[in-house]
Amino acid sequence: MSYADVNGMNLYYEIHGTGRPLVLLHGGLGSGEMFGPNLDALAASRQVIVPDLQGHGRTADIDRPLDVRLMGDDIAALIDHLGLDRPDLVGYSLGAGVAMQVAFNHPEKVGRLVAVSAGISRDATYPEILEQQGQVGAAAAEFMKETPMWELYNRVAPHPEDFPKLLDKIGQSMAKDFDYTEQVRALSVPTMIVAGDADMWPVSHFTEVFKLLDGGLRDGGWQGENRPKGGHALAILPGVTHYSMGTSPLLPVVTLEFLKES
């Protein structure tokens, strides 16, 4: 349990297990603890570095927006701080957005990328989810105090009274339009897209993302010779929603299978 001074922030991180390094990034309003037993499953064969992103968990917020691009730079700086040699990145939801930014902007620092439950364009999100996201802000703090997310934040955050500010920043971030189609198309890092079969975006969105990575365009061949040229992959997990993904026992299985090539 340590802190790294990166980009004007005291970034909390933990290291579990031994082996080839893997940086594991949590979802919004969470921390590394949200992976539950999956953290142990990954750490059984890998050295897993688990940061708490800006304003989350044990990492205090700083005076800047919650922006996946900036948080991606934080993780790139953490990789340098720890002297890691092209670790694999596994990110879930918000953490997947951050992990993708590292791969977009700092590909030389990344081995393989697993992007879990993260769409690449805002307009692909289900309309009812966009409506719910529009209600996230400081005014929802009292309601959120009935949730496990508040319980975790209240237990570990250095300044629990900042929870309404975090909700405001999360809400402002989700209200911004984004489309990373061209960045995904240009990815040079072997990438696996993972989604639940009842995720926050339609399954069809994730298959379109896979197409950007040269996937789903032809038969793979008897020996896999026609699989996507960049070593990319797609996993749709059955019976999994956006909210159960982090603790689904299927997640470490597909993740470690993809990463065994690294």
Rank of each mutant, 00 (worst) to 15 (best):
V136A: 06
P238L: 03
K260D: 11
L42I: 06
S204D: 15
V240R: 08
G221Y: 01
R122W: 03
W150Q: 10
D61K: 08
I62C: 13
Q183A: 09
D88A: 15
S121L: 12
P107D: 09
A76M: 00
I193T: 00
S2Q: 11
I15T: 11
F178N: 03
G8N: 06
R218E: 06
Q223M: 03
Y153D: 09
E33M: 04
G221T: 06
G111C: 08
E261Q: 11
D74I: 01
G30T: 01
L251H: 07
P228Y: 04
P37L: 01
K211L: 07
A76K: 01
V50Q: 01
D219P: 01
E225P: 03
L213K: 01
L234P: 00
G91P: 12
E33W: 05
I49C: 13
E261I: 08
A138L: 02
E128N: 15
A195R: 15
E128S: 10
A235G: 09
T125S: 09
A198M: 14
L94F: 10
I62Q: 10
H106M: 09
M9E: 10
M1W: 11
G28L: 04
I15V: 10
Q132I: 02
D162L: 15
L82W: 15
R112S: 14
M9P: 13
A44G: 09
Y243P: 04
A124I: 04
P238T: 01
L78T: 01
V203M: 07
L259Q: 08
I120H: 14
L237G: 12
R218D: 01
V6R: 00
G137M: 02
D52W: 08
I79Y: 02
V253Y: 08
T191S: 11
H56D: 07
M174F: 13
V114Y: 06
R46L: 11
Q133H: 04
A186W: 03
V209F: 01
Q172L: 02
S2F: 05
V102S: 02
S93N: 06
I79A: 03
K165A: 14
P190C: 05
N226F: 04
D80R: 12
E261S: 10
L42Q: 03
G19V: 03
G8P: 13
V194D: 08
P148A: 12
P190K: 08
I49S: 05
D5V: 11
Q172C: 05
N10D: 08
G171F: 04
R20M: 06
N10S: 13
Q132K: 13
T255G: 05
H81P: 00
P249V: 11
V102W: 10
L53D: 02
L24H: 02
M71W: 14
E225N: 05
V253I: 13
G72N: 09
T191M: 04
L82N: 08
P202T: 00
K169G: 14
S244F: 08
S45G: 09
R122Q: 12
L29P: 02
